[in-house]
Amino acid sequence: MNKEYSCKVLKREMLTQDTAYLTIDCPEIAQKAIPGQFVNVSCSRFLKRPFGIASTDKENGTFNIGIKIVGGGSGELASIPEGTVINVLGPLGNGFDLSSDSYILVSGGTGVFPINFAYETLRASGKDVTMVQGFRDKSQICLTSDDYIVTTDSGDYGIKGTCIAGLDTIDLKKDQIVCCVGPVPMMKAVGSWAEAKRLKCYISMEQRMACGIGICLVCVCKKKAEQEGVPFEHVRCCKDGPVFEYGEVIL
């Protein structure tokens, strides 16, 4: 049975001016989570807040989430005192297909967090991974490495341009899978880039959410209808996603 866990926040650090990184104690989630999944976290607001899992440490029984401050709830969680106990539902949703041998991972915005988890997992199993990170400017850079291809819109760090400029520097291999998490325009651009190169591509959607477990139907994405008589269908971001194959949902 799935559970709601009471978990202690062990550590909080600020990665950028408006982005916090929490280490949370929960052996069950650390054990079960796969990259692309998320957790729904309580704060003093009425609804929980969803965050992509950024990393797990099975040995120590902890996992990490990154929190970009966008409103009251995320602001509160980003400044939560270490030692606070929070309610966490998870791991939720479907993760990435990690069965291939070679990957290109692309991230932007809060997408760096789930993509970081995918990178760590793939590298731990010895797979070939090329990492591309696209940021607005240097001040937004986090969870990076000298091994990654980094682009900035402003050009004050790495390659100037969008992540497509970074992707164009890669020598492509056969059967490489692309996983991209970021703002919709980025996922659109990367999806169509991958399509042109005949590479399979997965994206991860973000919507305003309530339950996170598929019962309230508020966080839907549009999908081309299979049934007759309906212009389109809605699929649940939380339960049917958040990871979808590019082309599956209408961006």
Binding site: R208, A210, V218, C219, V220
Partner: peptide, 11 residues
């Protein structure tokens, strides 16, 4: 009949 429901932000 099946219904897709309302579009856009729902919560």
């Amino acid at each position: 009949k099946p219904r897709a429901g309302n579009e856009g932000v729902r919560v």
